[in-house]
């Protein structure tokens, strides 16, 4: 097992959430530009992350950056763009 630290960074205030199968999800209490969460997962087969950023649709094109770190080392860094609700899945690479 290993602790996976997740950092969501939004280009504008948005309701942020990250979900992992079979674990309580982490969500911002209101519009925010960042959200940190930590999940303990099987290091041999880490679960996928479902990430969500609900921006103000009037705000035009917005970006969500998702960084995944293990023991301080970045193992995945991805960005998603869209208007309004930006949602996608981040697959964490196997070690």
């Amino acid at each position: 097992m290993a602790a996976y630290d997740i950092l969501l960074t939004a280009s504008a205030p948005a309701r942020l959430a990250v979900r992992v199968a079979n674990q309580p999800s982490a969500e911002s209490t209101g519009p925010a530009t960042s959200l940190s969460a930590s999940f303990t997962m099987n290091a041999a087969e880490p679960e996928d992350l479902a990430v969500f950023a609900n921006f103000d649709p009037a705000g035009g094109n917005c970006a969500l950056r998702v960084e995944v770190r293990v023991a301080g080392k970045t193992i995945s860094d991805s960005s998603f763009w869209g208007t309004g609700l930006v949602e996608d899945v981040v697959a964490i690479p196997n070690p």
């Binding site: 079979n22 087969e45 679960e47 996928d48 992350l49 479902a50 949602e87 996608d88 899945v89």
Partner: peptide
């Protein structure tokens, strides 16, 4: 395709 990924992300890999 994105909808499928989001639905399947709720399933543990095991």
């Amino acid at each position: 395709s994105k909808w499928v990924r989001l639905q399947l992300a709720t399933l543990p890999k095991a």
